[in-house]
């Protein structure tokens, strides 16, 4: 009888620590869940990177779903992500809007010239003030916004083929678009 009590405590601790290990291996603690999921995207209006005198805004994008991909020339992980966007970007059947975050225009243009431009349009947020309203806290980040302007999904960190197939594709199919990517 005496032995059972320490054994039970030991097993309980093993369970607790095991749960902690499992939790940390399946969750990345630095990812902060966004409170904006399921809510309307903030109002935004930003100059186009290629034509700074023209701008794009939220109202113009209403009516069909689109993907907003936050990137910057100073962001190393964005260079890792870029080939994935180049490979999948045009097959998603929704506009892929590049969101150039806290970047110098010349740097961004050179970066896109070097790595290729997978985007339908590129908007530039040089001050990063609009990005605060989106809850951006790093790059790359990717948002899926539906035709009514509601944020459906947010991915923090680089998009990978796995994330596109497992997380993005099912949501796109639910929206009734026809991506050429197969599961």
């Amino acid at each position: 009888m005496k032995l059972y009590v320490p054994l039970a405590i030991f097993l309980a601790l093993v369970g607790l620590f095991g749960f902690g290990l499992w939790w940390n291996s399946t969750h990345i603690p630095t990812l902060v869940p966004s409170p904006l999921i399921g809510k309307p995207a903030p109002d935004w209006k930003l100059p186009l990177l290629y034509h700074p005198r023209q701008s794009l805004d939220k109202a113009q994008m209403l009516g069909r779903p689109y993907i907003l991909n936050v990137f910057a020339s100073w962001c190393f992980a964005c260079a890792d992500e870029h080939p994935v966007l180049m490979a999948y970007g045009r097959d998603l059947d929704v506009p892929l809007i590049g969101y150039d975050y806290k970047d110098k225009r010349g740097d961004a243009l050179a970066w896109l010239a070097k790595h290729g431009d997978p985007y339908t349009q590129v908007v530039a947020d040089e001050s990063g003030r609009t990005a605060i309203n989106f809850g951006v806290y790093g790059a790359p980040e990717t948002y899926l916004i539906d035709a009514r302007g509601i944020i459906l999904w947010k991915h923090i960190g680089p998009l990978t083929p796995h994330v596109i197939r497992e997380d993005l594709l099912p949501r796109l199919l639910k929206l009734g678009v026809h991506p050429k990517v197969t599961t």
């Binding site: 902060v32 869940p33 966004s34 409170p35 904006l36 605060i132 309203n133 989106f134 809850g135 806290y137």
Partner: peptide, 8 residues
């Protein structure tokens, strides 16, 4: 801030 970044 909470509206944008959550309770975190």
């Amino acid at each position: 801030l909470v509206d944008r970044y959550g309770d975190y």
